[in-house]
Nucleic acid binder design. Sequence first.
DNA 1: TCAATATTTCAAGGATTATATGAATGTTGA
DNA 2: TCAACATTCATATAATCCTTGAAATATTGA
Lengths: 117, 117
Amino acid sequence: MLNQQQALGAFGALSQETRLHIVRMLVVAGPEGMAAGLIAERAGVSASNISFHLKELEHSGLVFQQRESRSIIYRANIEVLGDLVRFLMEDCCAGHPEICAPAIEVAACCAPAAAKA
Amino acid sequence: MLNQQQALGAFGALSQETRLHIVRMLVVAGPEGMAAGLIAERAGVSASNISFHLKELEHSGLVFQQRESRSIIYRANIEVLGDLVRFLMEDCCAGHPEICAPAIEVAACCAPAAAKA
DNA sequence: TCAATATTTCAAGGATTATATGAATGTTGA
DNA sequence: TCAACATTCATATAATCCTTGAAATATTGA
């Protein structure tokens, strides 16, 4: 679980164009992740700049890295992303979740299984 | 749906202690909402300061207001909160949602119905 | 209409924070 | 040892962001 300081850090990290773009790319990339160089290329920024932003994201827990040969692969931390959303939405609607229907679809974005069920 | 600029604004709004606190309180309050004065009292800040932060949140679309007699009632905009999460998580895991299991539980925070189903 | 309640607006001060750049450095593998 | 891939660091720029208090606005009841 996330405490308030961590949530504030995470939201702050997501409030910057390049970083939001990175996280969204890594969410799509999934477990394969992306090398720092590829991220920089796709984001259209310099190597040192992407490194700066990746460090910010890593510091906030939203992504993590792993060296693979010459490249450093970055991946989105799905657990933390989920925790962040829960931190924001917990105990919503004072125990009357039916009211939160619009938010329930949240899961549908990446969970056809849940949507079908 | 949300565009990138709106998402950046929303995440920025959420990256401040008082504002994050406000949104979380309003999520719990649900459709009843809370009067500005009560929000200020609970957050422990001045009237003019809460007004400043409420305006920021309203500007970002995360909350909306409605006058009710002498009070101005604020409510969380659940649709926008859902859109924000979808903006972040869409197309996750490159079409292999089973990998995103930890994020799927996101819905469970306020949707027993969805969790059961 | 006057006073009380509830909230917003405005001006101003103060502190610091965030981002981009380029050169230098570190690590890995051929 | 060289080339590829990334990070670190110093520097410069620019830009907010938040808080406060006084005054203004809107609503209601006496």
